[in-house]
Design a protein around this nucleic acid. Structure first.
Lengths: 251, 251
DNA sequence: ACTTCACCTTGATACATATCATTCCCAGGG
DNA sequence: CCCTGGGAATGATATGTATCAAGGTGAAGT
């Protein structure tokens, strides 16, 4: 049922981004070495041979909910959103992915279809490591397993916290929290205030778990209260302390 | 901040349950062998020597949010709830644990304090495997790592789904969903209808992520609609099809 | 420069759900 | 036996959010 809808969409996603064979993407290589090469016997050469690096344009889908995974992705450069699409079409953003992060491992490890769709928030350079290689390293190299378990545990912890907040905190607090989360994930521009992602109001709402109009209204309030500054999709966090207070964090 | 509050409570939890040294708890042994002994070289003897089995009474806390983990727990028999306590004191139930499940691994693997509190929903027999042993097996035995990754991935998938539903579905649907979830987790009694856990209305509400009164009201409605039957804490699922429909599942 | 379109914004309104208050029920203890 | 207290239930009410509707804005394209 779910994947029937997805299949249709997968067909639209023939465009794999421009593939760069045997790329010199050093960033990606660094990331890989830190994630995949914790042990002495480093697998970098193997990975360099097998990996496929591609560039995805803003808005492009990297993998789609319901599809079968054939490997893991490592972000060399760029920003990605992972999202569920509820039945009513509304999207829920589950995770924000940044350079150096890997994604697509959950489906691979549990041997299931993707439960989320990965979409580029801006032009992104992404490496793909085939399933077989990944699994074989995992088999041999305990340190990669530990790293994966660490990542999974950490994501699970975050997800559970989000569940609690979604169930217990009002939208206002969650929005403030989300702004801080975006800052933490993608950082700010040179001025030290402007969030360095451009998200639509709808995307912000889907991150917070609320209606677009509510997100807009509350952002306006935050602005009126001098906490933030809005200029199109630019969001500047002016009074961080006040935002933290509004988020009402305690953990 | 969080763990300061927790510490206070941990002190109340000196009672570790009655410890059974070198127990003959076969159920637990079976569970361990299926989880910890996938590989040829089975570690069962080691585990048998090191593990400590205890019996916890209903309501007793097995481990507490904010405390440091010293090992993993395997449920030999009984039912456990894992919950976050929000700052305002309201609890959010994150997971229901049953015989054969393990718990406490997340904190151990990410090397952090517990983020949830484990409380016995009924008298339970639980085995404890010390951190060192667990980690050393994990180091040697890739199949245990795979199993752990599989478990973590699966939990993460469920958590993300819950996030989406919490953000997008009304309480009515979530309650129906929760009833089905409870049935799936703990099963039903001999009559084929009565859920085999007794949860307070508050606990049900904390599972759904709503106010206690709302849960009560909706349960009454469900009853009026002939979907369920209520008798104290006994809940009988009469019209499963109707409940599924109310839950409005699509995945 | 005009159109177009996607996005943002604001207002009015409805509704679901939380909250508060009260009563009821029942089991446990003196 | 009655008393007591902790859930459970129900009603009244408040309120936060979603939803619907109607402009507004700005950028891209013709």
């Amino acid at each position: 049922m779910l994947w029937l809808r997805s299949c249709k969409l997968v067909l639209l996603q023939i465009d794999m981004g421009s593939t760069i064979q045997n790329p010199a993407c050093q960033h990606c290589r660094d990331r890989f070495s830190s994630i995949f090469c914790k042990a002495e016997q480093c697998n970098l050469e193997q990975i360099d041979q097998a990996k496929v690096c591609s560039v995805y344009k803003k808005g492009q889908v990297i993998f789609h909910e319901g599809a079968y995974p054939f490997g893991v992705y490592c972000i060399n450069d760029g920003k990605i959103k992972l999202s569920h699409s509820g039945d009513d079409g509304r999207e829920q953003i589950i995770r924000l992915v940044k350079a150096g992060d890997i994604m697509g491992y959950k489906a691979l490890l549990s041997n299931e279809r993707y439960t989320a769709t990965a979409t580029a928030l801006e032009d992104s350079s992404i490496c793909f490591v085939p399933k077989d290689l990944f699994m074989s390293i995992l088999q041999k190299d305990a340190s990669l397993s530990f790293e994966m378990m660490r990542i999974l545990s950490s994501e699970l912890r975050k997800a559970e916290l989000k569940i609690t907040h979604l169930a217990q905190k009002p939208v206002r607090e969650r929005l403030a929290e989300t702004l801080l989360f975006i800052k933490e994930t993608y950082g700010v521009e040179a001025d030290g205030h402007t969030l360095s992602v451009r998200l639509s109001r709808e995307e912000i709402a889907n991150l917070v778990g609320t209606a677009t109009e509510s997100a807009i209204r509350l952002l306006s309030e935050f602005k009126k209260d001098g906490m933030i500054e809005l200029e199109g999709k630019k969001i500047r966090l002016l009074d961080l302390q006040q935002i933290v207070k509004t988020a009402n964090l305690q953990d």
